[in-house]
Nucleic acid binder design. Structure first.
Length: 838
RNA sequence: GCCGAGGUGGUGAAAUAGGUAGACGCACUGGACUCAAAAUCCAGCGUUCGCAAGAACAUGCGGGUUCGAUUCCCGCCCUCGGCACCA
């Protein structure tokens, strides 16, 4: 403590002349200079044929809806680039590409409004964005850039469509689909959020349309199983699981009374079959019309009309009262021959299971509510283990238990009963096991212009015909009318629509819808490793060498869209023999969201933080580093104008430190105080490395700050003549290397200041010496009955008995232990000594 | 309602996950340098009581396990994401 007080009176020991020689930290000039040099020397060009120690680090590519990078882009890209740089310094051949998901609505809407062709505005945006990305200083290999709106790319998106089509995984059907009245197009289920369009928040309506689907449901099970093989955030996997919505149960057939018709129902509770007291069909169920008796017809028709209306207005509210109406018909419970009424109700979904449900009011809350409302019978068939069977139910009992009122199955555990009843039904051909999924097929048609045309045509003779692969790409016509009126704009390009059938040579017309842009992004990671390939979408060998992606980083909002689609497409290509792997992204991390004043940034709120301003005023090194320092990467955080000055200050502090030591080079051999610097150096290497590995950038930076702080104390405490020479030869170069992933421009400059060979990124990442982070003497806290009462200093290798003895000798500890019975004494290695007394 | 994540100083946040809570920043306070300011360097800084030594209280709230809990268990309260009548 004494010598600290001395320091207060000392400023940095330098002559005025030397001080004047430390140049200003001119970030603008430095950043520009090194960006130019990196480009000239092709420093970030990756040799893709070298696959030994390959590492594919990928960020979700860019959607160029505007011409500037926003803070979310920076937060995704800059820290990931830091991680990639770190890995490169660790000796990996890191491939870090960037590209553009360039098709999509904003460009088209812009065209409708301003009359600028989407290709023009998109190219312009990409042009600007590319410059900005270069300012960020990321080590993208620009020779591998891709643009999904270029025919060289979408030719292969169309190829992908054809592979799915040929294998029965792409099909067309008429269905009630989600329609966004504002975007004037259909949407996939995944793109509907709370009943509204994911993009523009307009309420989505249902429309019956003939549309293209990808059969993702065929892959439901594989998509679930693959989760076990990937290192992804738990919550993302949970979201996908939930979205796929697997449930195991049975399909049970009920004969319609006095008819040959059969109603199949899906249930997860075959054990409650004896408790069925009525049957419910969705209003859209195909048998509804047939089952409705003459006297019930007016009521049923009225009900169907009404549900259609409510569904569009208010289908969101789950707390809505359940409604329904009796059809007049009955069906027979296969297990006991009981005749039960058939109702229709809109709490039954037409699109899930069979669109019909066996109602067990005693053991399903929805059926319970419904039966109370319409005074339908409630029959308990499961009771709680050890429970009394004469209770009246006040709510449905939905747990497992013991079967009752179930004839020969009485007394069975309901879990066993599930299996037995299905066996019983199977023998009589009225039921079987069944697994259902909530997942629906992926609707990929879009009635918009700016997308990849679907490579299908309709021939008067042959019907639906796939465009032969050798005729790809089906080029997007350039001259179209952007009506924005719900018809596919390319239908206005007559010479596009009218074509010739490749099979019979007769007249045919082309499909005028384009593909969902999520199709473009479902395979782009395969294209990056061979972006210029002309005759194939990808080179099989190259792709198998480089994929799966080792580290993928992007927003959590894509959990059930892009991330599910990409997995699906990968699995399909795997099954078709195009690739060896069946998961695209081995390890995934989601960056958090940067808010401003506690709210999500948005133009409408007017709280958008503009990165450009900070890059002008403080430099991109400061900006990117602050993004990493502000909080934990996966949590994101709230923007602060004040916080960023702390990082800028730190960078200037590093700048002056390195320069000063460079100018007044230590040549001495002082070792006592230098030991602390060395300790801090190795401590920083160790912990920064561990933190970086896990994307914990904030704590990694903290360790570097500690090292800088310790170095400052040293050069002030020890006069220049005796300062240890290793400060210059070892500590400063290592510090610069540790900084290189975070602030690549400044590190490159300081590396040059230290007269080291270009480039710092090609240096081996420092490795700590474990001996250096072990202290000879350590401080232990001494706890008596859970409270810290003192500190002792002991040799690091002291025996427990010795430590306890020293601890008991401590004045304060004696105060609390003397005269009392010592019940327990524990030594927690390198941490503390614990006493329990009575 | 269900599934996830979280609640820590004035403030952004740490804590290798049972072991000395608050590392590292920001803000603030004091000192050095300066004619002065800025910049820079050094130091202090959870709350309450105390001149101090120290003591008590502190990780959303209430219980529990333990010598010891931000960390584990039980019950609540908030905040943020996701799902939403899925039989």
């Amino acid at each position: 403590m004494l010598f600290r007080a001395e320091w207060c009176n000392r400023s940095i020991k330098m002559s005025e002349g030397q001080r004047a020689m430390i140049p200003e930290y001119d970030y603008a000039q430095i950043e520009k200079k090194w960006q130019k040099r990196w480009e000239e020397t092709a420093l970030y060009k990756v040799n893709l044929s070298d696959v030994e120690r390959k590492l594919y680090c990928l960020v979700m590519f860019l959607y160029p809806s505007g011409d500037r990078l926003h803070i979310g882009h920076w937060y995704n890209y800059a820290p990931t680039d830091t991680w990639a740089r770190f890995k490169r310094m660790q000796g990996y051949n890191v491939f870090e590409p960037m590209g553009y998901d360039a098709f999509g609505l904003p460009a088209e809407n812009y065209a409708i409004k301003h009359g600028v062709h989407p290709a023009m505005s998109t190219n312009q945006n990409i042009e600007n964005i590319r410059q900005q990305l270069k300012v960020m200083g990321a080590m993208y290999d620009w020779s591998c850039e891709i643009d999904t709106s270029k025919s060289e790319y979408y030719k292969w998106t169309q190829w992908l469509f054809l592979q799915l089509y040929k294998n029965g995984l792409a099909y067309r059907k008429k269905a009630a689909v989600n329609w966004c009245p504002s975007c004037q197009t259909v949407l996939a289920n995944e793109q509907v959020v709370d009943g509204a369009c994911e993009r523009c928040e307009t309420q989505v309506i249902q429309k019956d349309l003939e549309q293209w689907f990808f059969k993702i449901t065929d892959y439901a099970e594989k998509l679930l199983q693959g989760h076990a093989t990937i290192d992804w955030p738990e919550k993302t996997i949970a979201m996908q699981k939930n979205w796929i919505g697997k449930s195991v149960g049975a399909l049970i057939s009920f004969k319609v009374a006095e008819s040959a018709d059969i109603i199949d129902v899906f249930t997860t509770r075959p054990d409650t079959l004896f408790g069925v007291t009525y049957m419910v069909l969705a209003p859209e169920h195909p048998l509804v019309d047939k089952l409705t008796t003459a006297e019930n017809r007016p009521g049923v028709q009225e009900y169907i009309l009404q549900t259609r209306k409510t569904k569009e207005i208010d289908r969101l509210s789950t707390e809505r009262d359940k409604t329904g109406v009796f059809t007049g018909s009955y069906c027979i419970n296969p297990v006991n021959g009981e005749k039960i009424p058939i109702w229709i109700a809109d709490y039954v979904l037409a699109t899930y299971g069979t669109g019909a449900v066996m109602a067990v009011p005693a053991h399903d809350q929805r059926d319970f509510d419904f039966s109370i409302k319409y005074t339908l019978p409630i029959r308990q068939v499961i009771r709680k283990n050890g429970g009394d069977d004469k209770q009246t139910l006040e709510a449905a009992y939905t747990d497992a238990g013991v079967m009752m009122n179930s004839a020969i199955f009485d007394g069975l555990n309901s879990e066993v009963g599930k299996v037995r009843i299905v066996e019983w039904l199977k023998e009589r051909k009225s039921g079987q096991e069944k697994i259902n999924y909530k997942l629906r097929d992926w609707l990929i048609s879009r009635q918009r212009y700016w997308g990849a045309p679907i490579p299908i045509l309709f021939c008067e003779q042959c019907g639906e015909v796939a465009v032969p692969e050798e005729d790809l790409p089906v080029l997007l016509p350039e001259n179209v009318d952007f009506t924005g009126r719900g018809v596919s704009p390319i239908s206005t390009a007559a010479d596009f629509v009218q074509t010739v059938c490749p099979q019979c040579g007769g007249p045919a017309r082309r499909e005028v819808d384009t593909m969902d842009t999520f199709v473009c992004s479902s395979w782009y990671f395969l294209r990056y490793v061979n972006p210029a390939l002309l005759d194939k979408p990808f080179d099989q060998q190259r792709v198998n060498d480089w994929l799966p992606v080792d580290q993928y980083v992007g927003g959590a909002e894509h959990a059930v869209m892009h991330l599910l689609y990409a997995r699906f497409v990968t699995k399909v290509l795997h099954d078709l023999g195009h690739i060896d792997f069946d998961e695209p992204f081995k390890r995934l991390i989601h960056q958090g969201i940067i808010t401003n004043a506690g709210a999500k940034m948005s133009k409408s709120r007017g709280n958008v933080v503009n990165p450009d301003k900070f890059i002008d005023e403080l430099g991109s090194d400061t900006f990117r580093m602050y993004m990493m320092f502000m909080g934990s990467y996966e949590d994101g955080g709230d923007w602060s104008d004040e916080g960023i000055t702390g990082i800028h200050r730190f960078l200037k502090r590093v700048w002056r430190l390195v320069w000063q030591i460079h100018l007044e080079r230590p040549t001495g051999a002082e070792s006592d105080k230098f030991a602390r610097v060395l300790y801090q150096l190795h401590y920083a290497i160790k912990h920064a490395t561990e933190s970086l590995e896990r994307f914990h950038f904030n704590t990694a930076i903290s360790r570097l700050m500690e090292l800088v702080n310790e170095s400052y104390l040293y050069i002030q405490d020890v006069d220049a003549a005796s300062q240890n020479a290793r400060l210059y030869s070892e500590v400063m170069p290592t510090l610069v290397q540790l900084l290189a992933p975070f602030c690549p421009h400044m590190a490159e400059e300081l590396w040059a200041v230290l007269e080291k060979k270009y480039s710092v990124i090609d240096q081996q990442w420092p490795v700590h010496d474990e001996k250096m982070v072990e202290l000879n003497t350590i401080n232990l806290g001494v706890q008596v009955n859970g409270k810290i009462r003192g500190q002792i200093q002991v040799a690091a290798d002291a025996a427990d008995a010795e430590i306890i003895k020293a601890a008991l000798a401590h004045d304060k500890v004696r105060l609390y232990t003397e005269g009392k019975e010592l019940v327990k004494s524990i030594v927690v290695p390198k941490k503390l000594v614990v006493f329990a007394v009575k």
